[in-house]
Simulated scan of single mutants.
Amino acid sequence: MLNYPEIQGRVAKEIVDVIGYERTPRLSDRGSLPYCEAVINEVMRIQTVAPLAIPHQACVDSSIGGYRIPKDTLVMVNLWALHNDVKEWDNPREFNPGRFIDTESGQFEPRPSQSYMPFSAGRRMCIGESLAKAQIFLLFVSLFQNFEFTAAPEQGAPRLDGFCSIFVNHPFPYKACAKKRLIRSV
């Protein structure tokens, strides 16, 4: 968000317009904050936390997409490739929350699971998905309701690429400044 101050501003405006400064965000606010939901989903798409998902082992002989998978084969889903597939996403390396907004209604529109699965999919998907999504939403909205974030002046905007250690994607270290939003009296 440090690299996209215009998106950060739009997020803050939506939060203040819907929630204001007086109360803390609630999960029931999700449907009223479509742009925030879209930004959160775009962050999870473009910087997949676990690019190769968690390895699984085939319990029986099976097939995926026409490929034969023998029993006991180790299977790893490349979520990074899925989230950056040019057949599924226009300009996949561009940060664009509009991918998750319905152009007619202006509402948040989840992507189909075959092209977007930050928590994996199927029977062995992340068991904490619901809790994680709730916590991410509440933290994200609370932070942008109360603070404006900028890159540290001596450093500039952080790099958007990262590095992967075993199964987790990490950002390169960076510094940021958090400035309390001014509460405007009505």
Results as ranks from 00 to 15, higher is better:
residue 172 F to A: 02
residue 100 F to D: 01
residue 68 R to S: 15
residue 39 V to F: 03
residue 174 Y to T: 09
residue 120 S to W: 03
residue 106 G to Q: 09
residue 2 L to W: 00
residue 41 N to I: 00
residue 106 G to T: 07
residue 17 D to W: 11
residue 161 D to P: 03
residue 100 F to E: 00
residue 106 G to R: 11
residue 10 R to N: 09
residue 157 A to N: 12
residue 150 T to W: 00
residue 45 R to D: 01
residue 65 G to H: 14
residue 167 F to K: 05
residue 124 R to H: 07
residue 34 P to Y: 03
residue 66 G to S: 10
residue 183 I to S: 15
residue 92 P to H: 07
residue 111 R to E: 13
residue 151 A to V: 08
residue 61 D to K: 12
residue 135 Q to P: 05
residue 151 A to I: 06
residue 33 L to G: 01
residue 34 P to D: 06
residue 47 Q to F: 09
residue 101 I to N: 00
residue 121 A to G: 06
residue 13 K to D: 12
residue 65 G to Q: 15
residue 73 T to C: 09
residue 185 S to G: 07
residue 146 N to R: 13
residue 86 V to L: 07
residue 139 L to A: 15
residue 44 M to A: 10
residue 163 F to A: 08
residue 75 V to S: 10
residue 180 K to I: 06
residue 66 G to M: 07
residue 102 D to W: 06
residue 101 I to C: 04
residue 13 K to N: 10
residue 93 R to D: 14
residue 170 H to S: 11
residue 28 S to Q: 11
residue 51 P to Q: 10
residue 64 I to W: 01
residue 186 V to N: 14
residue 84 N to Y: 10
residue 77 V to S: 11
residue 90 D to I: 04
residue 129 E to V: 07
residue 184 R to E: 15
residue 89 W to S: 03
residue 105 S to W: 12
residue 121 A to E: 09
residue 18 V to M: 04
residue 175 K to Q: 15
residue 64 I to L: 08
residue 67 Y to M: 04
residue 157 A to F: 09
residue 176 A to L: 15
residue 185 S to W: 13
residue 120 S to M: 07
residue 169 N to K: 12
residue 89 W to I: 04
residue 88 E to H: 08
residue 52 L to Y: 02
